[in-house]
């Protein structure tokens, strides 16, 4: 699993700040404002820190998985980016206990404010 991560790459200052923010958030993932923050980040970013998988993704994934598994249909709409990111992580790491997602589920398009 760790071979997926390019550990030799140094994080920028901004990424370090994000990493510590997500470490904090991973302690309280069942709160809706945490989910909103994570979802907002992942709207424009494939991984938490940009274009590459980082340890932070794996840590947050482990703590958020039970929450994703308890998602109701409307949560798939509201936290679609968390779901997409979670599905990427669980498949890249070949997780044993995957959550189900219908990737062709029709959702209202997000309108940019």
């Amino acid at each position: 699993m760790s071979t997926l991560i390019n550990a030799s790459k140094d994080l920028t200052k901004e990424q370090q700040a994000l990493a510590s923010q997500f470490s904090t958030l991973s302690l309280r993932v069942n709160e809706s404002d945490s989910l909103v923050t994570i979802n907002d980040t992942l709207r424009s970013s494939t991984y938490l820190l940009g274009n590459e998988l980082n340890k932070v993704d794996l840590t947050l994934f482990d703590s958020i998985l039970p929450t994703i598994k308890s998602f109701k249909p409307e949560d798939f709409v509201n936290y679609r980016h968390v779901v997409r990111w979670g599905d990427l992580i669980q498949n890249l790491t070949d997780h044993k206990d995957k959550f189900e997602v219908n990737k062709d589920l029709e959702l209202p398009r997000e309108i940019k404010e």
Binding site: T46, R80, V83, R84, W85, D87, L88, N91, L92, V101, N102, K103, L105, E106, L107, R109
Partner: peptide
């Protein structure tokens, strides 16, 4: 583009991982 955008709701790549 709307179709592509909908396709990418739950996908990080066009197909697969």
């Amino acid at each position: 583009l709307e179709k592509l955008d909908a396709h990418l709701n739950f996908r990080s790549y066009i197909t697969g991982y």
